[in-house]
Design a protein around this nucleic acid. Sequence first.
DNA 1: CATAAAATGGACTGTCAAGTCCAAAACTGG
DNA 2: CCAGTTTTGGACTTGACAGTCCATTTTATG
Lengths: 201, 201
Amino acid sequence: MPTLTRKGAATRRRILDGAAAHIREFGVAATTLDDVLARTATSKSQLFHYFPGGREELLLAVARLEADRVLEDQRPQLGDLTSWPAWWSWRDTVVERYRRQGGLCPLNAVTSHLGEGTPGARAVVTGLMGRWQAELAAGVRHMQGAGEIDPAVDPDRAAAALLACVQGGVLIQMSTGETTHLEAALDMGIASLRAGSFPAN
Amino acid sequence: MPTLTRKGAATRRRILDGAAAHIREFGVAATTLDDVLARTATSKSQLFHYFPGGREELLLAVARLEADRVLEDQRPQLGDLTSWPAWWSWRDTVVERYRRQGGLCPLNAVTSHLGEGTPGARAVVTGLMGRWQAELAAGVRHMQGAGEIDPAVDPDRAAAALLACVQGGVLIQMSTGETTHLEAALDMGIASLRAGSFPAN
DNA sequence: CATAAAATGGACTGTCAAGTCCAAAACTGG
DNA sequence: CCAGTTTTGGACTTGACAGTCCATTTTATG
């Protein structure tokens, strides 16, 4: 594996960012390697130099990039779910983030295009879900510690449900273009936490 | 548009079913027209005879097929949400349906491959969501009529949240292979209905 | 400045799959 | 059985796009 010079690292990053941008704009199917090259003013040999695995490796890298972005875009609210106002503030952040993104989810697009055959693609999504759920669960535990949530609630299960609310809301937004479902589901999820109306198991 | 003879209709159906089956087995990306032809013992000219729009039209037809199947697989429970046991029974049906399907959703796969460019693809999903939500909302209204759900709850909004729970649960199952999230979200959703812990707006 | 390693340009190849075409066969209704 | 329509076979065309290759330039380092 060749060591990257500063220039090399910059080129690699340019390709990666360009690919991500093009995908966000036109979708995965409509993104060819040549498109990326044209947009980033690079050549084939460069792309294959930095991504020896070709298209697949590049898409996977984009997936990782987008996955990281998802959590970053929820900072700092996601890491600070320590009061009801904080939960609502997180809710608003999420809704706003996806509203801005418009009815399309680059991460879902990329992984669904990489498809089942690619073990790496699944891992990226699974990892993201795991981290996300863990942070939500931490928030639930904190609220339990503060006596705001019934201690009988299973934090992981509650976090799982909440995560599903977000995912479902976003998925539906992808076809309707509206965030109505996302908002309704989040509101219900948080209200449910608060009311302690979670089933025990 | 030529009128279909009995034989022609049979061939068309064979192609459609074969395409759907192949997609469920290998995914959209790994499904070429030639694959479908081989599996269904038909020829190119037949495929283009019955699906003049080619691949895109075929995929759209598959999407419609899968969309219909989604609701059908929830019968009769979905249409009969008239008591709490009925709601739980519906819940079990949904979970079981997706467990059987395994971690992959042909409908999502197809539409995400058709991508944004295709107005028809969106319409199929939007239509499905609309019908689904309407049936859930009807169930909520019925329960309100029976005095089992707080009349202050907005049935459409509650149905929207519930639908998001299902979608999110399924989406997560696509990467984890587990139905844990789906179950947690559904349990929360129904419990929330029952407890009347829905936010008013 | 010399040398090796890394970076770059871009032409070239091979493959694969969508879509076209026409002629032959089968079916329909009278 | 006949004329018209639908159905079928499968070869052929076309285009696109991933991936290869090698020559050249640039950069790092002692």
